[in-house]
Computed example of a mutant assay.
Amino acid sequence: MDLRYALALMGSPINVFGRSDATLAAEAQQRLKSSIAFGLPYLDGGITVRPVQILHELAVATRFAYAPDVFEVYRYWALMRYVGGFDRTKAMPPALTLSAAARKVRGHQRAIMSEEFGVGMSVVLARRWFEHTFPGLVMDTVDVDVAIASGMVDKPKGRRADFVLSATAPGARRMSAHGVLESKGATRSDKHARDIPAGAGQVEATTIQGKAVPGIVGGVLAGAELRYAAVGVQPLHSGGPVDLGEVGRLDGGTRVAKQVDASRAATDVFGTVLARYAEIADVPELFLRLAPARLRAQRRPTGRRGQAAQEVVNQVVYTGTRSRVPLPGGEMEAFLGVDRELIGALWEGDFATINRVRARPSRRGDVTAPAPDAQAARDEIVSTSTPATALVLRALRD
Rank of each mutant, 00 (worst) to 15 (best):
E27L: 09
G337E: 08
I343D: 05
P93D: 12
R63K: 06
S20I: 02
L396C: 04
L3R: 05
A26V: 01
T23N: 09
V124T: 01
A167R: 10
L32F: 05
R300H: 15
L342N: 06
S385N: 14
I14A: 03
R160D: 06
S166H: 12
A61S: 07
L55G: 02
P235R: 14
A61D: 01
I381H: 00
R103Y: 10
S122F: 03
K211W: 02
E27N: 13
A212W: 04
D373H: 15
A275D: 02
E333Y: 03
L165M: 14
Q315L: 03
L7E: 07
G201F: 02
P361E: 11
S385G: 10
E333I: 00
A377I: 03
G248L: 13
V317Y: 05
G84P: 06
G171T: 01
G151I: 05
L393H: 01
T206H: 03
V146H: 15
R160Y: 15
S99I: 04
L393K: 00
R81F: 11
E380M: 09
Q209I: 08
A266P: 08
V213G: 00
R31W: 10
A149T: 13
R264H: 06
G171K: 01
G179L: 05
R50Y: 07
P156S: 15
K258N: 14
A390T: 12
V312D: 13
W129S: 00
V124W: 02
A101N: 10
A359T: 05
Q298E: 13
S166K: 12
A200K: 05
V382I: 03
V367F: 09
A161G: 15
V273R: 00
T62V: 04
R255V: 04
T386P: 00
T384D: 04
R300C: 10
S238C: 14
R360V: 02
G329N: 09
V203F: 00
V144S: 12
P197C: 00
R63N: 04
A149Y: 11
A67P: 00
S12F: 11
S114L: 02
G120F: 05
G85K: 11
A377C: 00
F86R: 12
L221D: 10
T319K: 10
Y76M: 08
R305Y: 10
I112D: 13
E331N: 05
L295A: 02
Q375S: 06
A200G: 12
A193M: 06
V313H: 13
S362C: 02
S166C: 10
Q315N: 14
P326W: 15
G120D: 01
Q53P: 00
R188M: 06
V73A: 09
V105F: 07
A212D: 06
I354F: 07
R340E: 12
A95S: 15
V220S: 07
G45A: 01
G365V: 12
P156V: 08
E380R: 15
R106K: 14
V52T: 07
K155G: 08
L7V: 02
P235I: 11
T187V: 09
A293Y: 12
V392M: 09
V144K: 10
T89W: 04
L250W: 14
P284H: 07
G84W: 14
G252W: 09
R304T: 15
P235S: 13
G271N: 06
F17S: 15
L336C: 04
A278M: 01
R378V: 05
K211A: 12
D154P: 11
G240A: 15
I343T: 08
F163D: 13
A224W: 13
A6H: 08
P301S: 11
L226A: 12
V316L: 03
W129D: 01
G120C: 03
G337L: 08
